[in-house]
Simulated scan of single mutants.
Amino acid sequence: MASRLPAVFLTAWASVAPAAELAGTAEAGGLPLANLVVAAQALDEAGRVKAAPPPAAMALDQKSREFIPHVLAVRSGTPVYFPNSDAIKHHVYSFSPAKRFEIKLYSGVPPEPVVFGQPGIVALGCNIHDWMLGYVYVSDADYLAVSDNDGRWSLDLPNGRYRLTFWHPDAAEQPADQVVTLPSAELRVSLELKMRFQTGKPPASLQNQGYGDGF
């Protein structure tokens, strides 16, 4: 039977520092919430011009039978390597429409990366370890950030207008996009989180944050 954690609420706030840094914290039930994706799409030419190009490559590791990080946010077209830092073999796969792929039983670093060419949510699994779950958030947005274990996130943005999109893997519904103009004082976003732990193990986003294996 799937476990259920009572619904909790997340509030994200952001303020603008003098250096055009949009920064904030994410909390759920009074605790820091990791793995909140914040995507900013520039609506002005200045913001688009100053956006950095997609990185040459990124990595999503496997350590202690977990995907690290639990959520990786990348720009469309980014190649991602899937190193295996465990002493055992993993078998990574995804059936998500945005990117279907499979890396069969392997150790070390695969010689070729996986290129995530279209936007969407790519859920990752391991054929050997059922509880392993991770996500690649692929976006055409100009700027991306993911909240850390302290719930903190930040984006370096030139002044201008942006459409902000928020996403969390454990959200029952994702909040509506918001359009903000920088410099700006503050914004707030609330969304409801509902968790169903199919393996009886809390997701990585809530581990070590007050939610134990008893849920």
Results as ranks from 00 to 15, higher is better:
residue 39 A to S: 14
residue 161 R to S: 13
residue 77 G to C: 11
residue 146 V to P: 01
residue 128 I to E: 04
residue 108 G to C: 07
residue 40 A to L: 14
residue 69 P to A: 09
residue 171 A to K: 07
residue 153 W to F: 09
residue 24 G to H: 02
residue 178 Q to W: 05
residue 68 I to E: 06
residue 66 E to D: 15
residue 166 F to K: 06
residue 73 A to W: 03
residue 68 I to N: 00
residue 3 S to H: 15
residue 203 P to N: 04
residue 111 P to K: 05
residue 105 L to I: 05
residue 160 G to Y: 11
residue 99 K to F: 03
residue 207 Q to F: 07
residue 197 F to R: 11
residue 64 S to V: 15
residue 120 G to P: 00
residue 6 P to T: 09
residue 20 A to N: 12
residue 16 V to S: 08
residue 7 A to R: 14
residue 212 G to I: 11
residue 123 A to Q: 14
residue 23 A to L: 07
residue 101 F to Y: 09
residue 8 V to H: 01
residue 92 V to T: 07
residue 169 P to N: 05
residue 107 S to H: 13
residue 177 D to P: 11
residue 41 Q to S: 14
residue 174 Q to V: 14
residue 119 P to E: 02
residue 136 V to A: 04
residue 135 Y to K: 02
residue 74 V to E: 06
residue 160 G to W: 08
residue 178 Q to S: 10
residue 186 E to K: 06
residue 73 A to P: 01
residue 204 A to H: 04
residue 84 N to E: 00
residue 167 W to S: 01
residue 132 M to K: 00
residue 22 L to D: 02
residue 77 G to H: 13
residue 123 A to L: 12
residue 9 F to L: 08
residue 202 P to M: 07
residue 33 L to K: 08
residue 36 L to C: 03
residue 143 Y to W: 03
residue 191 L to T: 03
residue 81 Y to H: 04
residue 94 S to D: 13
residue 196 R to N: 11
residue 171 A to W: 02
residue 13 W to P: 01
residue 201 K to I: 12
residue 68 I to R: 00
residue 129 H to W: 12
residue 28 A to Q: 01
residue 41 Q to P: 01
residue 4 R to K: 14
residue 71 V to D: 01
residue 1 M to G: 11
residue 37 V to W: 06
residue 16 V to H: 05
residue 198 Q to H: 15
residue 73 A to M: 05
residue 141 A to V: 04
residue 20 A to M: 11
residue 106 Y to P: 10
residue 117 G to A: 15
residue 124 L to E: 07
residue 99 K to W: 02
residue 181 T to E: 15
residue 194 K to I: 11
residue 75 R to C: 01
residue 143 Y to T: 05
residue 75 R to T: 02
residue 162 Y to K: 02
residue 92 V to S: 00
residue 45 E to V: 15
residue 94 S to P: 12
residue 64 S to G: 09
residue 45 E to Y: 14
residue 42 A to N: 01
residue 96 S to H: 05
residue 166 F to I: 12
residue 108 G to K: 09
residue 214 G to K: 11
residue 179 V to M: 06
residue 115 V to K: 05
residue 210 G to E: 07
residue 16 V to M: 08
residue 91 H to T: 10
residue 66 E to P: 04
residue 29 G to H: 10
residue 78 T to L: 06
residue 137 Y to S: 03
residue 80 V to G: 07
residue 166 F to E: 00
residue 32 P to C: 10
residue 58 M to L: 15
residue 99 K to M: 07
residue 122 V to C: 05
residue 150 D to N: 11
residue 31 L to R: 12
residue 36 L to Q: 02
residue 133 L to M: 10
residue 191 L to C: 05
residue 210 G to P: 04
residue 140 D to R: 15
residue 194 K to M: 12
residue 56 A to V: 12
residue 24 G to S: 09
residue 200 G to N: 11
residue 82 F to P: 01
residue 66 E to S: 14
residue 189 V to D: 00
residue 121 I to M: 13
residue 29 G to V: 12
residue 70 H to K: 06
residue 104 K to F: 09
residue 23 A to D: 02
residue 111 P to G: 12
residue 141 A to E: 00
residue 67 F to I: 05
residue 55 P to K: 05
residue 168 H to S: 02
residue 31 L to Q: 06
residue 54 P to C: 09
residue 88 I to L: 08
residue 167 W to E: 01
residue 213 D to Q: 13
residue 191 L to R: 06
residue 200 G to H: 11
residue 156 D to A: 13
residue 195 M to V: 14
residue 149 N to H: 13
residue 129 H to Y: 15
residue 86 D to E: 10
residue 164 L to Y: 02
residue 84 N to I: 03
residue 214 G to N: 12
residue 137 Y to D: 03
residue 162 Y to G: 00
residue 182 L to Q: 03
residue 28 A to E: 00
